[in-house]
Nucleic acid binder design. Structure first.
Lengths: 264, 264
DNA sequence: CCCACGCATTTACACCGTAAACAAGTCACG
DNA sequence: CGTGACTTGTTTACGGTGTAAATGCGTGGG
């Protein structure tokens, strides 16, 4: 069952072997014994995925781990840093993804493509966590969401520069790529979250007037089926492809710095 | 003074007449008398802009208005809804922007361009508020950040459809446009917030090792000047232009619906 | 005059993050 | 074995938060 449906989203948590979904937080056999920073972060991610970000509380997370809230403070300085640790841990799942490489051994396009899908996989696996990635202030001024860790930025820049990009081009590519990834995934995740998140409308009135009155917006109403259609995967692919194409142009232009001779 | 510098960012709060910067919350002359939902929302925006989102508390906002916290509850159901009201109010500043039109009277490209810059102006004017726009769950499943209000979505779709886009093309353009705007502005705002936000490093050691050890990231270190360069305005313009170009292609193709004849 | 009503305050409560004191292992070493 | 230091988790306590409920308090109409 769940045989590989060709129309399925390749980055959705169900449509894949499960990489980048589970965090190997508690490799020990037993569950209860031995607190640990990794275990705490893993539990926090699990908790957020399950109950939402607002529900995460030191006390509740403690309870979830079978421990008192204050116990967490021995491994985490405070709640803010715990959240920082959460986004770091989530991003670190990239290292465990066999489809994402740190070096552009098969060309920069392959590198960027794999990286993008890896990040998307993470975003879809942790839709409640991902907004954190976008919101939390970055460590260094230029390391920005969603490629938070310096290691990935380094890898990104190296990959492009090794592939022939100038330094300027690599940096501008980093910016374009980051903003594309962040925007697209944030939007996609927010839509996902709503589609399943809030299904509580217990006031089942007779004809149930929708939340807001759609009265004055005929076009929106008419296009509602199209608007609520979920073609995220295809759109992502297309936008990504477009970005890569754009970068290719940049690269080609940057390779012939002065000579007006593309030689066709 | 502050004469129009050609290199200045046209969307920055200082580089402009001031539209979309001040919210006309309290048109009444006096300050203290008469609470009011608009006044509360305006004060909340002002407060967030000034002290950051985390600092916003019912009690503090009350104090800021010269009133007790519970007084706010007569005009706002609760804190969550207050924040919803804040993003709504911020987005509503678009209506007061003379450079942004609700209809594409001068062509859809002009419309999209003006809208994008209008939203950018708002984002830059309220960098602390804008992440809220991205994070808050949308009212309807398909009305998503950053074009939260149905009225703008309606206007957007109408503008494109009136300009010859098919319904499908208009919807997909809406998605591409939204995600572009959101991603770019979120990144830009987050970078802005850091650049000025955290200037507190009172531990002025002798050689002051930067926050994290930049040891293992030579490329990042080498490109730091480039990475911290702020060319947001130009990048925004370029990415926007590219998006418009892409949409133009979509439009052209969508105008020849079936004939398998691109001719050449 | 008075009283009802709209508006702001006061009070109260459960919950939050976290500082500080405390207890309960665990382990090295004499 | 005793004993002290160290690790780990708990208890207690405090100030702050969102908000329900009761309380005051002008101010205008009968």
């Amino acid at each position: 069952m769940t045989e590989p449906d060709p129309t399925a989203d390749p980055d959705s948590p169900e449509g894949r072997g499960g990489a980048a979904a589970a965090i190997p937080a508690a490799p020990r056999g037993a569950g209860r014994a031995g607190l640990d920073r990794r275990r705490i972060l893993g539990a926090a991610i699990e908790f957020i995925d399950e109950h939402g970000l607002d529900a995460l509380t030191m006390r509740r997370l403690g309870a979830h781990l079978g421990v008192e809230a204050m116990a967490l403070y021995r491994y985490v300085p405070g709640r803010e840093q715990l959240l920082d640790g959460v986004v770091e841990a989530v991003i670190d799942e990239l290292y465990g993804d066999p489809d994402v490489h740190l070096s552009a051994s098969r060309g920069w396009q392959d590198y960027l493509q794999r990286l993008a899908h890896g990040v998307r996989r993470i975003a879809l696996a942790h839709p409640e966590v991902f907004p954190l990635v976008a919101t939390r202030p970055p460590a260094a001024p230029w390391v920005r969401p969603p490629l938070r860790s310096l290691r990935w930025v380094e890898s990104f820049l190296d990959a492009l520069i090794d592939s022939g990009f100038t330094q300027e081009a690599a940096v501008s590519a980093y910016r374009a790529y980051s903003s594309f990834l962040l925007g697209h995934l944030l939007l996609e995740v927010s839509q996902k979250g709503v589609k399943i998140g809030t299904e509580d409308h217990p006031d089942g009135g007779p004809d149930a007037a929708q939340s807001t009155d759609l009265g004055g917006y005929p076009t929106v109403v008419r296009l509602a089926p199209l608007l609520s259609l979920d073609e995220s995967a295809a759109e992502f692919e297309e936008a990504l492809e477009n970005l890569l194409g754009r970068l290719e142009v940049v690269l080609r232009e940057s390779r012939t710095p002065r000579r007006g001779d593309p030689r066709s």
